[in-house]
């Protein structure tokens, strides 16, 4: 699709409006209840284990660059870094996109700063390894084995290299918590990691962790957006079953090239 059409614009507007409304409502203090995700509860346990063992923790934001997915991953990892700063754990964060280094450094330094431990922050532990997928995976696998990490947090965009990292961490007995929007990698992560957050839980994670009004509001807005899509799906099935495939709803959502 090169440009939007009226149906697409309307739907996007409705979902965006729902998200923004709920964010501002939540900021005004009307904060709704949200449940916790078991995989995210495990983060504190994993940090605690690294503290007990006195070994570093691996924070892995995936293969992405400065994009929405990797920034979301960084938001989750910044929470982990804050816990690490609190307990005095060393963190190692290899990245696959050089332009992401300053962003990651800033975020992790901020986490240490908030815990009043900025002097413990080691900029050299946030490192660029390679932007080649498997060279990067080999580098991370090497780090896991050399540093004998106690825990590994794999959050972000992963492809086939996910299993190389997760299996290496598994082999040295590290606790692993993972989350990715790459649906094809979830089976591999489930097989090799201790806790995995699935699907859009990845985007919900920061709200669960920080309980920030903006993020919680956004989460509720997202649910409204999903409900709208679900409603359209149900209506689509019902109307198409009754009226046949050539109906007004199908026509609304059919792109021009399909009609030709």
């Amino acid at each position: 699709m090169e440009h939007s059409d009226p149906v697409n614009s309307t739907l996007t507007f409705i979902i965006c409006a729902a998200i923004l409304t709920m964010i501002f409502r939540s900021r005004r203090g009307k904060q709704p209840f949200i449940r916790r995700i078991p995989g995210l509860n495990a983060i504190d346990d994993a940090v605690g284990r690294a503290t007990e063992m006195g070994r570093p923790m691996l924070l892995q934001p995936g293969l992405g660059g400065i994009d929405v997915i990797t920034l979301q991953a960084l938001a989750i990892l910044a929470y982990v870094a804050r816990a690490a700063a609190r307990f005095g754990n060393r963190i190692i964060m290899p990245v696959a996109d050089a332009s992401f280094i300053p962003v990651a450094e800033e975020a992790i330094r901020e986490s240490y700063n908030l815990e009043g431990r900025v002097e413990s922050f080691r900029a050299e532990d946030i490192m660029f390894l390679s932007d080649r997928q498997f060279a990067f995976a080999a580098g991370v696998a090497g780090l896991i084995n050399r540093e004998k990490v106690a825990t590994a947090f794999l959050f972000g965009l992963f492809f086939a290299e996910s299993l190389i990292m997760a299996e290496n961490a598994n082999q040295i007995g590290a606790i692993q918590v993972a989350g990715t929007p790459s649906t094809t990698q979830i089976p591999f992560l489930i097989a090799a990691c201790d806790y995995v957050i699935i699907g859009d839980e990845f985007y919900a994670a920061t709200a669960f962790l920080t309980r920030e009004p903006t993020l919680v509001g956004s989460l509720v807005g997202q649910d409204i957006g999903k409900a709208v899509i679900l409603l359209i799906c149900i209506l689509g099935v019902l109307i198409t079953t009754i009226m046949g495939p050539d109906n007004f709803l199908m026509n609304w959502f059919t792109p021009l090239w399909w009609k030709r």
Binding site: I15, L20, V68, L71, V103, A107, L114
Partner: peptide, 22 residues
């Protein structure tokens, strides 16, 4: 929808601080 919400928050700088605490 999650991607849209996160993109919207980043675009409008509604996220808190520099990722994302303050």
């Amino acid at each position: 929808v999650g991607l849209l919400a996160t993109a919207l928050r980043i675009w409008l700088s509604l996220e808190r601080g520099s990722y994302f605490d303050r």
